[in-house]
Simulated assay, not measured.
Amino acid sequence: MPENASALPTPPWSVRPGARAWRCVPAPAEVLDFHAALPGYAPTPLIELPALAGELGVGRVFVKDESCRLGLPAFKALGVSWAVHRLLGEQAGSGRDPGSVTLVTATEGNHGRAVARVARLRGQRAHVFVPQGVHPRAVAAIVGEGAEVTAVPGSYDEAVRRAAEAAAARDTVLVQDSAWPGYERIPGWIVEGYSTLCAEIDGQLAARGVNEGPDLVSIPVGVGSLAQAVVTHYRSRDRGRAPALLAVEPEAAACVLAGLVRGRAVSVPTGETAMAGLNCGTPSSLAWPHLLGGLDAAVAVPDSAGARAAARLAALGVSSGPCGAAALAGLCTVLGGTGADERRTALGLDATSVVVLLSTEGPSANPHHTSGQ
């Protein structure tokens, strides 16, 4: 599927040698057991696509399909459910009545709906701030979970600022998947919750005869919390092979790529993109050290590449939105254009490589927007 390299320019890309040797502390082992005990839990599918492997010139390609996770169309419920479990458990242990808590967050859609769903199931209230451009269907889905919704006439980053201000009220707690100095505990729990997705992949690959794990994982990146969870999983163990980890962002909001190029966290202005859930201009402060240390590479892709990737996945029977299809769009972009052979070598890919693509959400309600971060 990579297009003719001679016909394409060099993509926005950064590679960081030595990332596979970087190490960190693993996620708590009990997270998977917590999720497995939830009503309706089941591992999401890991779908093998031999035709795509042939097109990409690798051995095997698998897509982790997060289009239906605990009854919601994205992976976000994993992080939110664990974080709220930890939060309410702490409050019960301190003697505080958890029934008085309002969970506040900002969202492009899926994270906010997950907060609203978990709040409803746990008997809490939810207040969700949505930035300009979120599709009315995404807003309606959040309202349908019983949450109060406040529209913000600005960017995702502005919605986060407004949510943080609202969370200063009594009996109110911010449940955000992005961290900044002074606000890292709850985002850290959310990242821990995402570890279940990676643990599932281990078991599913082993069941297909891939006992050493993948050679490359391609990850859609917004503020970087999911990428932090993936880095933590694969950089906190010595067993099996250490895969290359590729971060994929929209060209309109490539803050992680910009930071990797500069060697430090930076904020970038954001523009319009169909990958709205990845439209974040500032990486999470909690995620950044893991991204800088453990990512092998990052690439920025245009919306057109995301649309082609979503169409290709659909043709192969995988239901994916623009954010989820970014994983494939990024890999195709890396393997096309000027310098494709060098990028393939930098990622350690050959005709025997096993690749996992994280398709983080189902199709969008609107061709111009998706419900992600």
Rank of each mutant, 00 (worst) to 15 (best):
A199Y: 01
A252R: 06
P181Q: 07
D65K: 08
S94I: 01
T10P: 00
G54I: 07
E158K: 00
P50I: 10
G362P: 03
G317S: 04
V25M: 07
C323S: 15
A119E: 01
R235A: 02
V25A: 15
T352Y: 00
R60N: 05
G271A: 12
L316V: 02
G57A: 07
V266E: 04
L292S: 12
A365Y: 10
G222R: 06
A309Y: 11
S195A: 14
G348T: 04
T196F: 07
A309P: 12
G306H: 00
L197A: 10
G306M: 08
L52P: 06
D215Y: 00
H35W: 08
A140D: 09
V248K: 07
V210W: 04
G203D: 10
G372V: 05
S304L: 12
R161E: 15
R120M: 11
V301D: 01
G293W: 06
P43Q: 10
L46W: 02
V84R: 05
K64H: 00
Q124I: 04
I190F: 09
G89S: 15
D33A: 15
V63K: 02
V58I: 09
P302I: 05
T370D: 11
T270R: 04
H85N: 14
C255W: 00
L88D: 12
G306I: 10
G109T: 12
L245N: 05
P45D: 10
A163F: 14
G109Q: 11
A19K: 05
